[in-house]
Amino acid sequence: MPDLYQSPLLVVLAYVMLYLPLAQSSIRASAELVPPELENVARSLGRSPLAAFAEVTLPNLMPGIGASLALVVLQLMRELTATLLLAPSGVVTLATEFWSFTNDRAYAAAAPFAAALVIISGVPVYVFTLRTLRRG
């Protein structure tokens, strides 16, 4: 177990456990819009089970997968507690840097990290909003 502690693997595992439900819920919403009958039709038109999935189900899942990826990235950017506790020493993220500088009251040093966080988090929000507006 000590080998695992503060290893990159453990950080990734922690992220997966924390954010899988989030990703899963938005992929599931779009999976429910793809009726299984579509794959049956593809099979009857000569596709193997794998080809039917790749050509019919997957393309219709892509919007959901994209949306959940954006959501998870948004959350990961600002994730702090799990990273602080589990990340190997020397490994830093924007959020941990921002947190440690503000802890030392070095607000000027923290500012670029905060700005970077805001800008990077803004990208998925921007993409989302555009998509919603286009559909609405």
């Binding site: 009726p35 009958e37 579509l38 049956n40 039709v41 099979r43 009857s44 193997s48 393309p59």
Partner: peptide, 20 residues
Amino acid sequence: IPPERRHIGYVPQEGALFPH
């Protein structure tokens, strides 16, 4: 024999067109 080798056309309820 799997459906892809039966050469049967299938029109399900509600059509089930490929939306993409």
